[in-house]
């Protein structure tokens, strides 16, 4: 395109419509670029936040941290048993609610299990392991895998360092 014409067309296009047409833009060697809108500021959550959140949930719903941090050596088995029975129920409920767990190999422990492929991350071979992948072996432990994590979204201002708030009763 003639330089003078191009200059005029650019001038009037901007003057009258406030924007260059595709054709002029191409001739000028300009490309349209969408300026991204500022993304809403999301709370930056770190891997530690997720771990702290799980701890907070297990403490809130089943008081697991209280149990683990307590020195139970001086209590008799009956006392420990009574507490654990109750804690076990609530702790498992809480875990099931937020994390869906399943065995890695859904077989019967102590029986022969055929292995399709061996990924060292999901199957650990024990005993006398040959250099060639064996067809299978005795299933000693089914393993656990997480199918789904369903944790509530974290709130921006939440202080994740607090796993359980102190409780103060007002008289």
């Amino acid at each position: 395109m003639n330089r003078l014409i191009l200059a005029f067309r650019s001038f009037f296009a901007i003057l009258f419509s406030g924007a260059l047409s595709e054709e002029i833009a191409a001739a000028l060697g300009l490309s349209r670029r969408v300026v991204p809108k500022a993304a809403p500021t999301l709370a930056v959550s770190t891997p530690a936040d997720g771990a702290l959140q799980i701890l907070a949930i297990l403490q809130r719903d089943s008081r697991l941290i209280d149990f683990l941090m307590e020195d139970i050596s001086s209590y008799d088995d009956e006392q420990v048993g009574a507490a654990v029975r109750s804690l076990h129920d609530t702790c498992r409920d809480a875990l099931n609610r937020y994390v869906q767990l399943a065995p890695v190999i859904d077989g019967v422990e102590g029986t022969f299990t055929r292995l399709a492929s061996i990924d060292p991350a999901s199957v650990k071979l024990l005993g006398n392991v040959p250099p060639q992948p064996p067809p299978g072996g005795l299933l000693r432990h089914k393993g656990w895998r997480c199918l789904k994590v369903d944790l509530p979204a974290l709130q921006g201002k939440q202080n994740m360092q607090v796993i359980a708030p102190a409780e103060v009763e007002i008289e």
Binding site: R63, D66, F67, M69, E70, I72, Y75, E78, Q79, V80, A82, A83, R85, S86, L87
Partner: peptide, 18 residues
């Protein structure tokens, strides 16, 4: 069927009422 009330405060096992 057992009815258990866990201990108040951080002393969970010690304060458990059965």
């Amino acid at each position: 069927e057992p009815v258990t009330i866990l201990g108040k405060g951080t002393g969970l096992v010690g304060g458990t009422i059965k």
